[in-house]
Design a protein around this nucleic acid. Structure first.
Lengths: 96, 96
DNA sequence: AGAATATTTACCGATAACGATAAAATTCTT
DNA sequence: AAGAATTTTATCGTTATCGGTAAATATTCT
């Protein structure tokens, strides 16, 4: 049981979620409403204290409007290319 | 809970796992030994009857020697690309 | 057809995710 | 510094994952 690699994956994933959320100016409460996932649950996911289910991650990605895969890995082999800057132009203006 | 989009995601993911496994000539028993995940557990994941945890998917991807992201999305042909397309495309519609 | 192999399904028990809520701790603002 | 907002932590209850095992179906091969 690679609890080692697991922890790193969870830590990296949580860090990416938080980065995107902050980049969009959302707090946990707002993301909680967008996802239907409670703020405490989001907190423990972002801090790698929980091993989220696939559909939980998908809901977070959808709410943040980023591809699910972008939360899971570095833009490694250039495939998806795009930007290092996730989706700059998103105004999520309506959620507050 | 958009069990709708969730089910599709789980179905697609399971189908991709099975495709890769078959492509490598592995049966469930062999993949079970490689991953430490039991064959019945792998079966229900491949048939979309279970919502796997992130580290479970990661172990499967590692055993199959494919990027985790490749199990989650189609080989995105220029998905969100570059531009400032108004992101309306991301249906977050059901999660709200 | 029958037999070997592969997959599915159905249990069980242990562990964990998740929502809800509230309280503590941290960070930000004035 | 005090106060407000944000995040973290904790507890409880419900539900689900997961391994194990075994039985029930496929599926494949001779």
């Amino acid at each position: 049981m690679s609890t080692d690699a697991d922890q790193k994956l969870l830590a990296d994933t949580g860090r990416r979620i938080r980065a995107v959320r902050n980049a969009q100016g959302l707090n946990l409460d707002q993301l909680a409403r967008l996802t239907g996932i409670s703020a405490p649950a989001l907190s423990v996911i972002e801090t790698a204290k929980r091993d989220p289910r696939l559909t939980t991650l998908a809901r977070i990605a959808a709410a943040l409007r980023v591809p699910l895969a972008s939360l899971l890995e570095e833009a490694s082999s250039g495939q998806s290319a795009t930007t290092d800057e996730p989706i700059q132009g998103y105004d999520l203006g309506d959620y507050e």
